[in-house]
């Protein structure tokens, strides 16, 4: 996504010529520096510098400067010292199908369940499988935001979504997830969405508020329903070959500071979310805060998604396993 101009350009401090013995991790991501994620990353970079006494550094490349997510992940498989943020739907495509479920619609009831899940044995199992594929998760406790739906015509209940063309990122989980809700999921690159909404080629888009606002989509679609269909926690992933080449102490510094920065991220995420919501209201967006009952309607409709486990290549009874692992009743 993109946000406002950066308040600072921390990226400048790195410079091209670092001493050869200095451990450098290059983090490429789609967001810009002023978004909460960017600010939290800066915090992470500072923490790493501090904890390692300057022997390790994180260099930040915002706004997809280093390439898109698949390019970055492919380069990790080559052992490059890069990291990026990615989530379950992505890892499903990289050979760990069960991971995809965390991006399913209405899987979590609240954020606490997310944080319980990432500490669970099930999650550790998934991480291990991912490591076999060459990808190491450094931190998983970063909230990316609740994903909401912004539409041209008002949506008050799940029934209103019927047949609406909602843009989703081009992956199987999110496509079938929105189809389960009765919408017609439409794959499209994020850069095309503004124009597509303006011309009503599509009826809506979904994302966390920061992205919806950052992309200015609220200029051309004036109805927002705070359905929170996905509680989007995200993970920082790097090459496991590269990670294993570090000393144990260096590994610990990375994971520890990554977690710490994640906690900071989650604080500012929450504040900024309220801020974005207010801005959208001020700029004429009609916001629907659905009642428990309406959400229950969404949730019920979403159930058919979890019956398609075979399509995704899920393990037997995955939904129940994951619900148990997150401590849901």
């Amino acid at each position: 996504g993109c946000g406002s101009k950066p308040a600072e350009t921390p990226a400048d401090q790195g410079g091209a010529a670092a001493p050869a013995d200095k451990v450098t991790l290059q983090i490429g991501f789609e967001n810009s520096m002023t978004e909460p994620i960017g600010q939290a990353l800066q915090k992470w970079a500072d923490l790493v510098d501090e904890e390692s006494g300057g022997t390790m550094e994180i260099v930040l490349y915002p706004d997809s400067q280093l390439g898109n997510k698949t390019d970055l992940i492919d380069s990790m498989l080559l052992g490059e010292n890069v990291a990026t943020l990615a989530d379950g739907a992505f890892y499903a495509d990289y050979g760990v199908p069960d991971f995809g479920i965390v991006f399913g619609p209405f899987l979590f009831d609240n954020w606490d369940q997310c944080w319980t899940l990432i500490e669970s044995d099930w999650y550790k199992e998934q991480e291990a499988k991912l490591e076999e594929k060459g990808l190491k998760l450094i931190a998983s406790n970063w909230a990316y935001g609740s994903r909401h739906t912004l539409t041209v015509k008002p949506v008050n209940t799940v029934a209103d979504l019927a047949g609406m063309k909602i843009r989703v990122p081009s992956n199987q989980i999110q496509t079938l997830g929105f189809n389960a809700l009765g919408a017609a999921a439409t794959g499209m690159s994020l850069g095309d969405v503004y124009q597509a909404l303006q011309t009503k080629t599509i009826d809506g888009a979904e994302n966390p508020l920061s992205t919806l606002y950052g992309r200015k989509l609220h200029e051309v679609a004036k109805n927002l329903i705070l359905d929170g269909h996905v509680l989007n926690f995200t993970t920082w992933v790097c090459s496991s070959d590269w990670f294993n080449s570090l000393t144990e102490e260096q590994q610990n510094i990375l994971t520890k500071t990554g977690k710490e920065a994640g906690i900071y991220n989650n604080q500012i995420q929450e504040e900024s979310e309220a801020d974005y919501l207010q801005k959208m209201k001020d700029e004429g967006v009609t916001v629907v805060e659905p009642t428990e009952e309406v959400i229950a309607g969404f949730r019920e409709k979403a159930q058919s998604f979890y019956e398609q486990g075979d399509t995704f290549g899920w393990s037997e009874g995955l939904y129940d396993t994951v619900r148990a692992a997150m401590g849901a009743k």
């Binding site: 993109c2 706004d63 950052g214 992309r215 200015k216 200029e219």
Partner: peptide, 18 residues
């Protein structure tokens, strides 16, 4: 309009695309 460059710029610099 429509121009890819203007949409991209508006996005990056947080300027109204309209």
């Amino acid at each position: 309009p429509p121009g890819i460059a203007m949409i991209l710029y508006g996005c990056i610099a947080n300027v109204s695309i309209g």
